[in-house]
Amino acid sequence: MVIWNIARATFKECTQKKVMWILLGVALLIIGLSFIFSFFAPSERLVLIKSMGLGAIYLFGAGIALIVTAGLIPTEIERRTVHTVLSKPVERWQFVIGKFLGIALVLFMNLILMGIALLIVIMGQGSVRAEGFVKALVSNARILEATLLLFFYLLILSAFAILFSILTTTNISIMLSLFVFVVGSLSDYVESLINVSQNPLTQIFLKALHLLVPNFGNANIYNPVIHGYIPPGEFLYLLLAIAYALSYSLILTSISCWAFAGKEV
């Protein structure tokens, strides 16, 4: 109840922020600007629209998660709104979880909006509609599947941003989280390097890095989605990948709760 109250207030607060709408607007603009690919052949154009669109969702989703989340708790402390909340019968962890859930709602809304926008653009392509509206809609709905998976991975990013913002400041939190995001996005390449590397020490280091760093790359199922085929075991993959994201977020949020419980506000 208390948590839900705080989550709702957080959602409302975020949706009042101009920066979120600007980021969302730019992302939608990029998704909508697909007509610039008109000089490509229809099949290539579709691949480009999907990949550009999914890429824009990935980057701007992360941008929204970072910028909106990192400022949340420091602003409360700075503007002292946190005093009136925490002097009520609210536990510190309830406050953190409430903030986190609020952000989750914000991210969900953003991703769904971007995903649907991309779906609309794709359905707007003549070559897609040619195979029949319902069939095309069903096959391209996997855009939303990829977007939904990304949602769980952006939760990790937000959990990082919250933790870092409790321990440091908004700006440092953004930089640290961005760093984690970039390293985590390279997970596929790190994994490939393990096989290429000859040095066992390097291999161990890379493997440890791969297992410790949050692997945002897990959210990248774009290739099959773009080319419209379903790899074997995809359902299980999605379950595992989501479980991974949730567990990772759980760790970070636990630490955030403990850190915030000991923080003087």
Binding site: N218, P224, P232, Y237, L240, A243, Y244, L250, I251
Partner: peptide, 19 residues
Amino acid sequence: VFLLVILLQLKVDTYRENY
């Protein structure tokens, strides 16, 4: 929880080839 995370990633890696 972290052990769970590592286990999940190892399992995820077995499917990652497809992507």
